[in-house]
Deep mutational scan, measured.
Amino acid sequence: ELREAFAKVDTDGNGYISFNELNDLFKAACLPLPGYRVREITENLMATGDLDQDGRISFDEFIKIFHGLKSTDVAKTFRKAINK
């Protein structure tokens, strides 16, 4: 299930999730959020999830993000976006 969610976000299939891919995910989900809020959520996920600070999120980092977000608003938003 997590591998499928990761693949859905990794639209270019390079094995990593970029800032733009995350941002595009939230935009495509048509969530009722202003653009600046989408950017804040994306920046927050990148800042906390990109553990090796290479500017992208690997599958291992994605798993840690996903499990670390349990019930936060960001987690709910992220799950809604993935499930669209």
Rank of each mutant, 00 (worst) to 15 (best):
C30F: 05
D52C: 14
F66K: 01
G49S: 08
D60T: 08
I41D: 02
A81D: 15
A81M: 09
F66C: 13
V9H: 03
H67Q: 13
E1H: 04
S18E: 08
R37I: 11
K27Q: 09
A29Y: 09
L45H: 02
D54T: 11
D54R: 09
F78E: 15
N83Q: 10
F78Q: 15
F66L: 15
I17P: 00
N83E: 14
G15Q: 02
C30D: 15
D52V: 11
T72L: 08
T72S: 11
F66I: 10
R39D: 09
R56V: 07
F26G: 00
D50H: 06
A47T: 10
K70L: 13
L2E: 01
S18R: 09
A29L: 15
L45A: 09
L45Q: 03
G35Y: 10
S58D: 04
L22H: 00
C30I: 05
D12R: 05
R37W: 06
T72A: 12
C30K: 15
E40F: 01
M46G: 08
P34V: 03
P34A: 06
D60I: 01
R37V: 11
L45D: 03
P34D: 14
F62W: 06
R79G: 15
I57F: 08
I65N: 03
I41M: 07
A75G: 14
D73C: 09
T77S: 13
E43W: 03
I65M: 08
K27V: 07
L69D: 08
G68Q: 15
G15I: 00
M46S: 13
I57D: 00
A75L: 07
N23V: 09
E61V: 08
R39A: 10
I57K: 00
E43H: 10
R56A: 07
I63E: 15
D24P: 01
G15Y: 00
A47N: 10
H67G: 08
T48A: 13
A5V: 02
D54P: 13
E4A: 10
V38A: 06
F66E: 02
F6H: 00
L31M: 15
K70Q: 14
D60F: 02
S18H: 09
Y36H: 15
K27P: 01
A5H: 03
N14I: 02
D12G: 05
A81W: 05
L45P: 02
K64F: 01
G49I: 06
T48P: 04
E21F: 04
L33Y: 13
K8Q: 09
F19Y: 06
E40Q: 11
I63K: 11
D10T: 02
N83V: 11
Y16D: 01
I17H: 00
A5S: 02
G15M: 00
F19Q: 06
N44I: 07
F26R: 00
F26N: 01
P32L: 02
L33R: 03
S18A: 09
P32R: 08
K80M: 07
I17F: 01
N44G: 12
F26P: 00
V74Y: 12
N14A: 05
F26D: 01
K64D: 04
I57P: 00
C30N: 15
F78V: 11
L25T: 01
D73Y: 09
L22P: 00
G15R: 01
L45I: 08
F66D: 01
Y36T: 14
C30A: 15
D10M: 02
A47M: 11
L31R: 05
L2D: 02
G68I: 11
V74T: 13
A28H: 12
S58V: 01
G15H: 01
A29P: 02
Y36L: 10
G15F: 00
E40C: 02
V74E: 15
A47H: 10
F78H: 15
M46N: 09
L51C: 07
F19G: 03
E40K: 06
N14D: 15
S58H: 06
A29I: 15
K70H: 09
K76D: 12
L22F: 02
N23H: 12
F62T: 04
L69T: 07
T11M: 05
E40L: 03
L51T: 10
N44L: 09
G35D: 14
F78I: 12
R39M: 05
T42C: 15
H67W: 03
K80V: 09
V9F: 10
D12H: 10
L51M: 14
L25E: 00
I57T: 00
L45C: 05
N14C: 05
N23Y: 10
T72Y: 09
K84M: 14
K84H: 12
V38T: 05
D52L: 07
R37G: 05
A5G: 01
H67N: 15
S71F: 05
K84N: 12
F62I: 11
T77G: 12
I63A: 14
I63G: 03
I41N: 01
T72R: 10
Y16R: 06
L25S: 01
T11G: 04
F62K: 00
F19S: 05
I57S: 00
L45R: 03
K70N: 09
F19H: 04
R79E: 15
T48I: 05
T11Q: 08
A75H: 13
N83A: 11
N83Y: 06
L51H: 14
S58C: 04
E61D: 13
E4L: 07
K8Y: 08
S58G: 05
K8G: 05
K76S: 12
T42N: 04
K27C: 05
G49A: 08
F62Y: 01
T11A: 09
G35V: 10
E43Y: 04
K80H: 11
P34M: 04
D24H: 07
S18W: 03
V74D: 14
P34N: 06
M46L: 11
R79V: 11
I17T: 01
L51V: 12
V38F: 08
N83T: 14
D24M: 09
F6Y: 01
D60W: 01
D24Y: 04
R39E: 11
F26L: 14
K64C: 03
Q53G: 09
L2A: 01
D50I: 02
E43G: 05
D60V: 03
A75S: 12
R39S: 06
M46V: 13
L31E: 10
S71L: 08
Q53N: 12
G49T: 08
G55K: 08
S71E: 14
V9Q: 02
V38Q: 06
G55C: 06
H67S: 12
N14V: 04
D50M: 05
G55S: 07
G49E: 07
K64W: 02
R56H: 06
K27S: 06
G49M: 08
D12Y: 05
K8R: 06
D10W: 01
S18Q: 15
A81R: 13
D10G: 01
I57R: 00
I17V: 12
D10A: 02
E4M: 15
N14K: 15
E21D: 08
V74S: 13
L33A: 08
S71W: 04
Y36I: 13
F26C: 09
V74Q: 13
L31C: 11
A81T: 14
K84Y: 12
G55T: 07
T42V: 14
D52I: 05
A7E: 09
H67M: 07
S58P: 02
T48C: 12
N83H: 12
S58E: 02
E21K: 12
T48R: 13
D54M: 08
I17K: 00
Y36P: 15
N20G: 11
G49H: 12
V9D: 00
E21G: 03
I41V: 10
E1D: 15
S71H: 09
I17R: 00
F78P: 15
Q53E: 12
N23G: 14
Y36M: 12
P32T: 07
R39C: 04
S18C: 09
A7F: 09
F6T: 00
D60S: 09
D52W: 05
F59D: 01
V9Y: 09
L51Y: 13
K70E: 11
F62H: 00
K70V: 10
E21R: 12
A81C: 10
P32Q: 10
N83M: 04
I65A: 13
N14P: 00
Y36W: 14
D24Q: 08
L22T: 00
L45N: 04
R3Q: 08
N20H: 11
K80R: 11
M46K: 14
R79C: 13
L69A: 10
A47R: 12
V38L: 13
K8I: 02
D24K: 10
A28Y: 12
D73N: 10
N14Y: 02
R79N: 14
I41A: 04
T42D: 03
D12E: 09
R37N: 10
K76V: 10
L2W: 01
G13Y: 01
D73W: 06
A29V: 15
E43R: 08
S58T: 14
K84V: 12
G55V: 05
L69W: 05
D50R: 11
E1A: 15
G15E: 02
